[in-house]
């Protein structure tokens, strides 16, 4: 099967600091892939490079078989690649409804937008009660839901998620992972998940990559990684 998203030996740096030193990974249609690793391993940079926010020095990024490296970041949502950035980054002074409308910014199909709006409100009923409320006044969990909902409004084929569990209560995290699972299951949406919470991520994912200081040190089925001695020691705190 053709991978829908593929990174080929990607190098990236912030000034003189090398953040990615030859990352290669493949994501196949319809699967959930987790990237785990410690702080500063280059997980977020991988996603930001994929989305064209961080420029890459070397290598190539293929989406549906075509190179997307060097494309402007704003072209990607149109092609079906969207990111839920780390730390939510919703628009705090815009209302929930306006946040969602911005997710559908590039789309022109009024009816489709209305339908998707209903769909995300069904997925996140909390947001329906708060459509007129400013994004910044929501709680952390609600903001994360809003960020996911906003990304879903772009109708992504591949959804990149950066630390969706960051700073949230365990109960909320569970809810969010249920929804991730749900979207993947019911719509066949491909999800690339970056997580520090390795246990949670590997349970949700089918395959996983382990990143260390800018390189992929391990890749395997999520189940196998979850039962790997080294991984358990390094990332699962055993």
């Amino acid at each position: 099967m053709e991978p829908i998203l593929e990174l080929k030996d990607v190098y990236s740096s912030y000034g003189s600091i090398k953040a990615l030193k030859g990352i290669s990974l493949k994501v196949f249609p319809g699967e959930i892939v987790a990237i785990i690793g410690a702080n500063g391993a280059g997980k977020s940079t991988t996603l930001m490079a994929t989305c064209g926010i961080v420029p890459i020095d070397k290598g190539d990024i293929l989406y549906q078989g075509k190179s997307i490296s060097g494309l402007m970041a704003e072209k990607l949502p149109i092609m079906g690649l969207c990111q839920v950035p780390e730390g939510r980054r919703i628009f705090p002074r815009l209302t929930v409804h306006e946040n969602l409308e911005l997710g559908a910014f590039y789309r022109k199909d009024r009816a489709g937008i209305e339908k998707d709006m209903e769909r995300v409100y069904d997925l996140f009923p909390v947001l329906r009660d708060r459509t007129k409320q400013q994004g910044g006044t929501l709680s952390g969990g609600e903001q994360q839901m809003l960020a996911i909902a906003r990304a879903l409004m772009t109708r992504p084929k591949v959804l990149l998620m950066d630390e969706p569990s960051l700073g949230l209560a365990p109960l909320i995290v569970q809810r969010i992972f249920d929804i991730i699972h749900d979207v993947n299951e019911s719509e066949g949406m491909t999800i690339l998940l970056v997580e520090q919470n390795a246990n949670l991520a590997l349970q949700a994912a089918q395959r996983g990559y382990v990143l260390e200081t800018g390189t992929v040190t391990m890749e395997d089925d999520a189940d196998k990684l979850l039962h790997n001695e080294e991984i358990r020691k390094a990332y699962l705190g055993e």
């Binding site: 704003e74 990607l76 949502p77 149109i78 628009f91 815009l94 306006e98 911005l102």
Partner: peptide, 20 residues
């Protein structure tokens, strides 16, 4: 609306397909 999104968070606006 797009201008306001840029004011609020430029990177997030870009990720949503706003030609910042």
């Amino acid at each position: 609306r797009a201008w306001e999104s840029i004011r609020e968070d430029e990177t997030a606006a870009e990720l949503m397909g706003v030609n910042t």
